[in-house]
C-alpha cells in the first residue's frame, strides 16, 4: 500500500534553529532517506519552503480567488512529505516514527487512495 507521510513542525522554530542543529537535521534526514531507499519503500518526497511562500487558490463562481498564505493557519505547518510503499499500517507507522521530524513535530500518515478501487 502507498502511504503519504506528512511532516508537521513549527517552521518558525525550524528557521530559527542554530546552524549546528540544522546540520544534524540535514544529515539525519539524509540517513533516513537512504534507509528508506535501501529498504525499497521510498517512492518520493520533498522538503517544502515555509508557508510565507504559500499561495492558496479557490475558484468561486468562475472567478479565481488567489490568497497569500497557506490553506489554514496552524500552530505547526506542513514542512515536507514522503511517499512510501509499505505492506501495512504498522510498517508505515514504523517508518513515520523513524522520521527525524517525529521527534519534535508530528507525522500524519495517510493511505493513498488507489484510484482503481472504489
Amino acid at each position: 500500500m502507498k502511504y503519504l507521510l506528512m511532516i508537521y513542525a513549527d517552521e518558525t522554530a525550524m528557521l530559527a534553529a542554530a546552524p549546528e542543529n540544522r546540520t544534524v537535521m540535514t544529515s539525519s534526514y539524509a540517513a533516513y532517506i537512504d534507509a528508506m531507499q535501501k529498504a525499497g519503500v521510498h517512492l518520493g518526497g520533498a522538503r517544502l519552503r515555509p508557508t510565507t511562500s504559500a499561495t492558496s487558490i479557490r475558484v468561486r463562481n468562475g472567478k479565481n480567488e488567489v490568497l497569500n498564505g497557506p490553506y489554514a493557519e496552524t500552530k505547526e505547518q506542513l514542512g515536507g512529505y514522503f511517499l512510501i510503499d509499505a505492506p501495512d499500517l504498522d510498517s508505515a507507522i514504523a517508518w513515520a516514527s523513524r522520521c527525524p521530524g517525529a521527534a519534535s513535530g508530528a507525522i500524519e500518515v495517510r493511505p493513498v487512495w488507489d484510484m482503481q478501487t472504489p
Binding site: M1, Y3, P87, D88, L89, A92, P111
Partner: peptide, 10 residues
C-alpha cells in the same frame, strides 16, 4: 480496510 490495519499478532 483503507488504512491497511494488519491482522497480525505483534
Amino acid at each position: 480496510r483503507h488504512a491497511g490495519v494488519p491482522f497480525r499478532i505483534p
